[in-house]
Design a binder for these strands. Structure first.
Lengths: 226, 226
DNA sequence: ACTTAGATTTCGCCG
DNA sequence: CGGCGAAGTCTAAGT
């Protein structure tokens, strides 16, 4: 990884046009071809960047210009870095960094709900996970106490997109006469109000689930009015 | 900005739990409180990070541990960096970096079309931008020469999602008897063929607009057959 | 190569 | 402060 601290002006042309006026910034050139331009503020995002694969071109001695090119389809993306002054320029061999181990993403929610489908609805039994349809798999397919079919879409945060997704699945599932009365449940850690509005306007049930409760690490909230 | 190249192990707990095994990485500590952990590969994204506002805690001399805390509502987010070996540790005063000037995003398109709604359709007058519905605001609400209502959805690149979005808005708008005959227009710099097909099958008009023409920097194309 | 869906999405705007 | 939608979203997985 090459780290250059320099006073520079950066121009991006591609999907849009963007110009960064001359200022002191960090240029991060990764060994996979990534180029990131970071300011001292601005948080997570680089001010400008190019994702791999890229072709780099260096001009000047000392360095005066870096051109980063990418051939993405018909249009060429280009990052043009004009360097006015170099404050620091170091290269570190960092080798291979181990992968990130994550826990708590949507997949885990699906695993937990598959094992305890009653959190999706009273008396639900799991038929199978990743129930296939012509347009992709539904997260869970369940049956209720009256043997009715229920397709369950699981999200960490459910937005309107999730409602559309579940609606599409149901459209296809119901084409099978045996499942014409299949209903839908949207299960998520958090359901956005507008997603709930849309879901209920389409007759889809909404269930908010708690990861801690699913893991048995917290008691479910008591129902005050029975 | 403080740049530390170090062999370290990083643990994140918050919205999920993630562990990075010990390896050589770049730690970027920005003056706004951002902390980014970058590997030499992996492109654009940091392997781990925390966005401002944060509280940093340093332990050991030489540095052995950095704890980054964030108080986001009810749950505390925490990044725990355990440093095994420091390869480099430098701080640069980068001052204020000028803002990024972007050009060609959807907002500009909406501003320009709001000022010249006739590009969306003959004789259109703007009623308001960001017309509210129960499921979110429509980009433009217009009336035509016969005082008919038209909802306009604006996109940089219109895909099927944009058609679905406009359809949803119309479903809700038309529930008001006074607007039951509201029609829809999809306006975009580029309309994908499948989006156009779906839109027209639903009776929605499609308009491709040219940013240069809207700005008056280019003459509109002549209509060959009048 | 293209499409789809997830993401600790992040970010900005408007209520 | 929360909700919503755009983003040069990025990225990984499936086709």
């Amino acid at each position: 990884m090459r780290l250059i601290v320099a006073r520079c002006e950066v121009t991006y042309t591609g999907r849009l046009t963007a110009v960064l006026p001359e200022a002191l910034r960090l240029l991060m050139l990764k060994s996979d071809g990534s180029v990131l331009v970071h300011a001292d503020t601005g948080g997570y995002k680089p001010q400008n960047w190019m994702t791999p694969p890229t072709a780099l071109e260096f001009e000047g001695e000392p360095l005066e210009r870096i051109v980063v090119r990418k051939f993405a389809g018909k249009t060429e993306d280009r990052l043009d870095i004009r360097i006015a002054e170099i404050v620091s320029d170091v290269t570190h061999d960092m080798g291979e960094a181990a992968e990130l181990e994550k826990d708590g993403v949507e997949k885990h929610l699906q695993e937990l709900l598959a094992g305890q489908p009653h959190w999706c609805g009273e008396g639900f039994r799991l038929v199978r996970r990743e129930w296939p349809t012509d347009i992709g798999p539904v997260d869970l397919m369940c049956r209720d106490e009256e043997d009715g079919w229920i397709a369950v879409e699981i999200k960490r945060v459910a937005t309107i997109d999730a409602v559309e997704q579940l609606t599409r699945y149901l459209d296809f599932i119901r084409r099978d006469p045996a499942m014409a009365d299949c209903t839908g449940v949207l299960a998520a850690q958090q359901i956005k109000p507008q997603a709930r509005t849309l879901a209920e306007s389409r007759g889809l049930r909404c269930v908010e689930v708690d990861l801690m409760v699913l893991r048995g690490e917290r008691e479910p909230e008591l129902t005050l009015f029975v």
